[in-house]
Amino acid sequence: MFFSYFGKYILLLKAVFRKPEKFSLYWKEIAKEMVYIGIGSLALISIISVFVGAVMTLQIAFQLVSDFIPKTIVGSVNRDSAILELSPTICALVLAGKIGSSISSEIGTMRVTEQIDALEIMGINAPGYLILPKIIAGITMIPILVYISIFLALLGGYVGGVASGVVSSSDYIQGITTGFIPYTMAVAGVKAFIFGFIITSVASYQGFYVNGGALEVGKAGTKTVVISCIAILSADYIITELML
């Protein structure tokens, strides 16, 4: 079952990355998908990131029961947690539900209404035209969203920590600036890139091979979220093992 699924997945990707018939049509679709994935998800990612950063600051401060541990550690732990794990992974899991199910439903509806068959009859590479813009937009915009999420998580941690009194402004800022390793940002970027590819390609696969009607389209959306989340967490472990 797995090998059959993986084989069809690879064959679909080969068709997706075939040379486009007309680049101008693809650029319009790419721009539309970038707006949907990037700007359309910005508000949700921003709200989640701010609150996650604030909660993490409070929880880290709660664990610091010893007077011998400097308060600056709150900022440094929150920084590394946001960069390496929280922002990339939480953003990816949220976007798997929001974007993944939408892509799967969109392509699945086109499949059951025979719009994809019509494109193929006209000689258009349907996988390339429908899926390639989504993948390019995903691997481009999701890393940007992750970096925005990191900034907002640190900002939320600052506001939450200072407002609650668990850490002073100077201690928090000193914590997030002291001992910063730029390589961690590269790790976050690689994770975001891979997660973006997983979300868009898995969703497109599920939608493209829908058989049946509206019920099957709904099931494909559910399978997209489940498979994407499992693949994201697995990839998260592998990337962390290889890069750290």
Rank of each mutant, 00 (worst) to 15 (best):
G75K: 01
V112K: 10
G138H: 11
K98S: 09
G138W: 10
M122K: 10
Q115S: 10
S101R: 02
G75S: 00
I90H: 01
V94H: 01
E120A: 11
D117V: 05
L93N: 03
I90G: 02
I116C: 05
R79L: 14
T109D: 05
K98Q: 10
E114G: 08
S102G: 14
M110V: 04
S104G: 09
G128V: 09
I99T: 15
P88A: 03
I136F: 14
R79M: 07
T109K: 07
L93Y: 04
L86P: 00
K134S: 08
I142P: 11
G108S: 12
P127T: 07
A137C: 09
I124V: 15
G108W: 10
I139N: 04
Q115G: 06
M122Q: 12
G100A: 02
V77M: 06
N78H: 00
G128N: 15
E85C: 03
R111I: 04
C91L: 09
E120R: 15
S101L: 02
G97R: 05
V94M: 14
I107W: 13
S104A: 15
S101K: 02
S104Q: 08
E120P: 13
I124T: 15
S87C: 10
R111N: 04
I139W: 07
Y129W: 13
I83N: 00
I142S: 08
Y129K: 14
M110D: 08
A126R: 11
G97P: 07
V94D: 03
I83A: 04
E114H: 09
A118E: 13
S87N: 03
D117K: 13
L119T: 08
I99F: 08
I99W: 12
Q115V: 06
R111C: 04
M122A: 13
R111H: 03
S87D: 02
V112R: 10
D117E: 14
L86I: 11
A118K: 09
M110Q: 14
D80M: 06
G138E: 11
M141T: 15
M122C: 11
A92P: 09
I121W: 04
L93M: 11
